Amino acid sequence: MNTWSDEPGEVAVATNDAEPDGAAEQQEQALGSRAPAFVKDRRILHLSWQVGIFVVGLAVVVAGVIMLPLPGPGWIVIFGGMAIWATEFVWAQLVLRWTKRKVTEAAQRALDPEVRRRNIVLTSIGLVIIAALVGFYVWKFGVVMPWKIKDQ
């Protein structure tokens, strides 16, 4: 038997009551506003709640974008802003679900022994190239900072 959300304006994921406990797939949380019931019941209050959530989320996302070139956890802050938006907006919830799915898939691929082996080999080759370049620099110029090298 399938069940659907009866609340207006909310979209819910169908659940199958016939599934046994411990089913392979967990049911995802329903999409829609997570505002308290007294806020949802009053249109003006709900609209101002959504504006407030949007402004706070926007401030966090902008701070994350600023942190991308500067020191700081830019992507984490951006995803934090998206999580703030996801408390109220369905589009942000869908973006976060897609992002979580992609991150999980990438983590699974990264844990694959063949991929790990390839990454270790590529990292080792990169380190050997960097060591060769540093060795050549020290052989050619000695231990001198690049801005102190005179035309030779």
Rank of each mutant, 00 (worst) to 15 (best):
W91T: 07
P71T: 15
G81V: 07
T87L: 12
A107G: 07
A24G: 04
L96D: 15
P73Q: 05
N2Y: 13
G32C: 07
G126P: 01
I125S: 00
G22M: 05
A63C: 07
G74F: 11
G9L: 06
T123G: 13
V143H: 04
H46D: 09
D41Q: 15
M67Q: 15
R116W: 07
K100P: 00
N16W: 05
A14N: 01
K100I: 07
Q27W: 10
G22E: 04
L58E: 06
L58P: 03
E114F: 00
A110W: 01
I84W: 04
G126W: 12
A59Y: 07
Q26L: 14
E105H: 05
V134G: 03
L127I: 06
Q26G: 02
E10S: 09
V143L: 15
R34H: 08
E10P: 00
R42Y: 00
E88P: 04
V121H: 10
Q93L: 14
F141S: 08
I76Y: 11
A110V: 00
P71V: 12
W147A: 08
G9D: 10
A132C: 02
V143Q: 10
T99Y: 06
S48M: 09
E7Y: 13
I130D: 01
I129N: 07
A110E: 11
W98P: 02
I120T: 12
R109D: 13
Q29W: 02
P113N: 04
E114V: 10
L133H: 02
L122T: 15
V60W: 11
A106M: 08
F38N: 14
V62W: 13
A18T: 15
V62Q: 09
R97D: 14
I149R: 14
A92G: 06
V144T: 15
G32T: 10
L70Q: 08
W49Y: 11
G32L: 06
R101Y: 01
A30P: 01
V60C: 06
I84A: 03
A12N: 05
G72W: 04
T99D: 10
G52E: 02
L111S: 13
A23Q: 01
K140V: 03
L47N: 04
R43L: 00
V144Y: 03
A18I: 08
E19I: 06
I120M: 12
E7T: 11
G52Y: 02
L45G: 03
V144L: 09
A92S: 14
M145E: 01
L68F: 11
A131R: 02
